[in-house]
Design a protein around this nucleic acid. Structure first.
Lengths: 237, 237
DNA sequence: TAGTGGTCTAGACCACCAA
DNA sequence: TGGTGGTCTAGACCACTAG
């Protein structure tokens, strides 16, 4: 199959050159400045920045304001395999941690009511957290659980696994999960929480947890960094 | 939680304004020209283009050179649920079609050999196709199958489901699939095959098909449009 | 031919960081 | 203070589409 693209734009040539340059330099290496690269490639700084922007989105490069542009460390790709974040991390010998943004009472809107099969306006508990792997933010998520759990904040401090706390303290057992995986691009909030750039590709995952009777007991919206996360699923016919 | 972002850049304000404008205008509507928008927002055309670029990546807008910028039609999100593309589409009452790019003999490199559990350099058949839903390209993929299947091209013309052909003609039954889902950004080839813009977020899916004995019989690399695809998985503990 | 989006330029000012 | 990346500008030329 011949390369049928009429004329690849100049920034794409720069991008692929930079990709090679990064590979040779190795992780952690610092690249020449954008202004220097513009001179080297005989182009403008804007064009160089467009090339760098895509490599950043791919996780190849990292930019730090005031410091420079660096070759990213190899991705410690996190594979989702079981039901819960904490369990997945442990299964892969990765150090996981959580930062709780807030635990609050909310009422079900139409969408949450449908997903959790509860009446609109019923009480829900919302748990918002940032998930870390090896000290780096990997995802932020908000879990919604029917009912009120005033002691949850303290219990999550002792055990970061929401699923474990629900099981141990409240007898809620999640045995089945339905995941819907799509893409989105990062906005300012995502950029701040995950330490990424705006516009970076992200994985948006909606998960519904069901108990042994098939009753929905949890619904979560998760936003994962696209550059260091993979989702794994096994399906039997 | 207060909004901690110091100062959202101007292009982000433009982006959100355009998002509202697009919602009001409705699918298919044409937006003012980039030059006109620059005047309206009191900004430069570059800034307007940066805002539009992200909305295009999100699937909200569509640009057509020489014509204009349009509000995208609502996404016919394709959900992956079963094992094969054709089956999934049928289950959702979506018209699926395939365009075969090529069927060729290749030899296994180290990676394919490991995934398919065959010796390095063994014969494989590579089937490269573009997948369409409702006439629009949704994905391109390359499937690798151990062995040689000289009649495959003709058989795929009669039945676009590779899984069905393998079953009917060769007695190969795929009963289990392992999917690994991640993100990538589109390059020139992806842009050409899928009719998207370079830099658009894509879902990269590696799938391994196993037969009843757990023997790998197929390995596929698929690239799906991120703006109109969702992956669905159900996991039991 | 006129108008659209696609690419690229040269340069400005800002926010951040290290010496 | 000087250098880095982050943002934005005004304008140029090209490729494509339509009348």
């Amino acid at each position: 199959m011949p390369p049928l693209v009429p004329r690849p734009p100049k920034y794409y040539a720069v991008k692929e050159d930079l990709r090679l340059l990064a590979a040779e330099a190795g992780p952690g290496a610092v690249l020449p400045t954008e202004r220097a690269l513009a001179v080297t490639f005989g182009t403008s700084r804007t064009t160089v920045r467009q090339a760098i922007a895509e490599l950043v989105a791919e996780g190849v490069l990292t930019r730090r304001q005031g410091k420079g542009t660096f070759v990213s460390a190899p991705r410690p790709t996190y594979l989702r395999q079981l039901t819960s974040f904490s369990e997945d991390a442990r299964a892969q010998n990765l150090a996981s941690a959580s930062f709780t943004l807030g635990v609050e009472r909310v009422v079900a809107d139409a969408h949450l009511a449908e997903q959790l099969r509860v009446p609109v306006e019923s009480d829900l508990t919302r748990v918002a957290r940032v998930r870390l792997i090896d000290g780096e933010p990997l995802a932020h998520e908000a879990a919604y659980i029917p009912g009120l759990f005033p002691d949850l904040p303290g219990q999550l401090e002792d055990n970061p696994s929401l699923y474990a706390v629900l099981s141990t303290c409240y007898g809620i057992e999640i045995v089945e999960a339905e995941d819907t995986v799509g893409t989105m691009v990062g906005g300012p909030d995502d950029a701040r929480l995950l330490g990424i750039e705006m516009g970076a590709p992200l994985l948006l995952i909606f998960r519904r947890g069901l108990d042994a009777d098939g009753v929905p007991v949890e619904w979560t919206r998760s936003v994962f960094r696209g550059d260091r996360f993979q989702f794994f699923a096994r399906t039997r016919r």
